[in-house]
Design a binder for these strands. Structure first.
Length: 128
RNA sequence: CCGGCAGGCUAUCUUAUCGCUCCUGUUUAUUUCGGGGGAGGAAAGUCCGGACACCAAAGAGCAGUAUAGCGGGUAACGCCCGUCCGUUGAAAGACGAGGACAAGUGCAGCAGAAAGAAUGUACAGGUAAGGCUGUAGUGAAAUCAGGUAAACUCUAUACGGUGCAACGCCAUGUAUACCAGUGUUUGAGGGUUGCUCGCCCGAUGCUGGAGGGUAGGCGGUUAGAAUUGUCGGGUAACCGGCAAUCCAGAUAAAUGAUAAGACCAGACAGAAUCCGGCUUAUCGGCCUGCUUUUUUU
């Protein structure tokens, strides 16, 4: 099972990020929110993902770094199941909505549920 | 010994698995595999000082800001060291915006007749006359070259501006399109530091309308006023010689997660061009030196 999270799977383009926030759809499972858009498929990369923690809620850079690392880790461990069930490409942006610093095990299960919700939602969209 | 004072060091650790990032070797290869590096003492606040880069004058004057015993250190400083003086403490020590009020202006509670402007009580002396003189009285201070400059001010010294989103290169797109106005050495307009002057650019220009389009990469970017050791100079800050070492380099932004174990249990906190300081935050642990009022021996 491939659990790596290389450079190609990171969301880097400024353009894409602006697009995400202006026209992206979203799913959430507190304290996580996922914003996504469909993208043009390119070279085996199914999903480009970015992570964000609002500065308004966490003033210290250390806290924001820590939370982003936890979310990234949760995503890395859960993404393989997602990839197996995806037919098109997406750009992702994960937002952390909580007010407290999270615990990894909780975050991990939340991530799992969030991604299954995402799958359900996109599949019904496609069926319509 | 307890207590007190000063200074320095340190900042949970170990193993395994799964990941991230940079360098390097292998390789056709950005893949694979091997080897190695990967946050701090404050990385923070952005408060000073520099390096570096640009501004075709980066020039002059004014304004402004900072500093303030004396001597030294430094690339430089508003930092550091030494020392004198003052305040404070029993001491070790701590603290100090510590030049000038004999240029001008301003300010001064209570007490007091009166506080910088004139007056005036008692006693004594004195005169042509008069607070003219002395003493008493209030006060820190009563005409004394008064006090006060973290009051304006003056003096001396220093300071050009903007900051790596600087700046250089490559790639991509494009329009010397169209309309109106204005202007060509008698100069439209622009650049140049807060202002003024000066200086510089300037005709396929400038302003407005309408319309079109980019915002990706590389360098700068980490070998340095570097670190460690040692010897020498200096009271010290610090300086010099020699030897060894390479010690983060991301860019929606790397150093994390899980499991197990140890310690009476982990604080403040995350590099973003780079250094030297200052300031602020901080659970603890360790080391060195100094002091002896009281108490005990």
């Amino acid at each position: 099972m491939d659990q790596r999270f290389p450079r190609e799977e990171k969301l880097k383009s400024n353009l894409l990020i602006e697009q995400l926030f202006s026209e992206g759809s979203s799913v959430s499972k507190y304290p996580l929110k996922l914003i996504y858009v469909k993208t043009e498929p390119e070279d085996d990369v199914k999903v480009k993902a970015g992570f964000s923690v609002p500065k308004r809620k966490f003033k210290k850079a250390v806290q924001r770094n820590q939370i982003k690392r936890l979310i990234r880790e949760a995503y890395r461990l859960n993404k393989s199941n997602l990839f197996n069930n995806l037919s098109t490409s997406y750009a992702f942006m994960f937002l952390y909505l909580g007010k407290e610093e999270p615990d990894f095990s909780e975050l991990n299960t939340t991530m799992e549920r969030l991604l299954t919700r995402f799958l359900k939602q996109t599949q019904t969209d496609e069926n319509i």
